[in-house]
Design a protein around this nucleic acid. Structure first.
Lengths: 173, 173
DNA sequence: TTTTCCATGTAACTCGTTACATGATTTC
DNA sequence: GAAATCATGTAACGAGTTACATGGAAAA
């Protein structure tokens, strides 16, 4: 859907598309190059996009993709579905937290501080990304707030670990 | 790592393990049954756990798994790594937001309200989960706060969409 | 008596990743 | 002259999912 939405605004070739995604949208998609090329092929076969080969001088030939009417219809359907649904993300980092009482508080705190540094670095990076318009700006704002929450939460956790001695039992329901 | 950590606390068979995960930890792992059985097999072959077959009456035989010393070592390594690292989750829902300006505000708002209802339902569900101890409780708190943030954010987005007329352009860098 | 629960798995499949391959062109 | 950039892909692999298969036991 991301690809369709971008091609809808402007016809592009694969490399250009991935460059845009990597530079501007890296925070909300982990689309990799081979995946993109694969998807472009697939969507062309499905009739959602068409390609025109363009040769500029002696550069490698580009395949410029353009959205078709069928693609537009699919895109509209995907967009509505995406906006209406909600799938909560997974937090792999929470699994460690479940078992954090098994460690000495001192070590746990030290490990969590490492985590916090990574988060802070990510925040720095995010604050330096240029300003976008419309939806893209809201997405940045979303992710900024999320990171803020994460940092606060880890902070509180560290505080509590430094105060309390360890409780061993944790999973009785 | 989740499996290792649970087996570390108490030896279990696969079904029991998945029951625990589904009931208590469903919010932080989407581990499915076949995956669990597959991983148990794999970990047994790797020497991290051993299994003892137990037959109770004419019930299906259980394979009760127990952590080995090697498993303990691996678990400790995983735990430390997990606590120290940070990988930000992906937000598939944000992709739709990037393109939200392409829709009539009225429709966009209606779709986002559907999304919000799903979030609210999830929140309800979460508030009714029983209280845990230690790390597990912090994880619940984490996810509660996260959902709260999500709901607030969508709310603001809806507000802004109802105020502003649409801006068409959105991705110029 | 039909459904749900207990308990284990297999087979086929999808999706995505990593690593590799190619080759010209511009920049340092 | 070496490295990065432009531009497209393939091949092999891995992780995880869905759907299916099996069968007794308890609960409705």
């Amino acid at each position: 859907m991301l690809i369709l939405g971008l091609l809808r605004k402007q016809s592009m070739h694969g490399y250009q598309l991935m460059d845009l995604v990597d530079r501007v949208l890296s925070s909300c998609s982990d689309l990799k190059k081979p995946t993109a090329y694969f998807l472009l092929d697939k969507m062309e076969k499905a009739g959602w996009i068409t390609s025109a080969t363009v040769q500029e001088g002696k550069r490698p030939a580009k395949k410029v993709y353009q959205l078709t009417n069928m693609g537009e219809v699919s895109y509209q359907a995907f967009l509505r579905q995406n906006l209406a649904e909600y799938t909560q993300p997974a937090f792999p980092g929470d699994i460690g937290i479940i078992f954090v009482d098994g460690l000495e508080p001192v070590e746990a705190v030290s490990l969590l501080q490492q985590r916090k540094h990574l988060m802070a670095a990510r925040m720095e990076e995010m604050l330096q990304t240029p300003i976008h318009q419309g939806g893209a700006q809201w997405v940045l704002e979303h992710q900024r707030r999320f990171l803020e929450l994460e940092i606060n939460w880890v902070d509180e956790l560290i505080d509590r670990l430094m105060q309390h001695p360890v409780g061993i039992d944790y999973l009785r329901d």
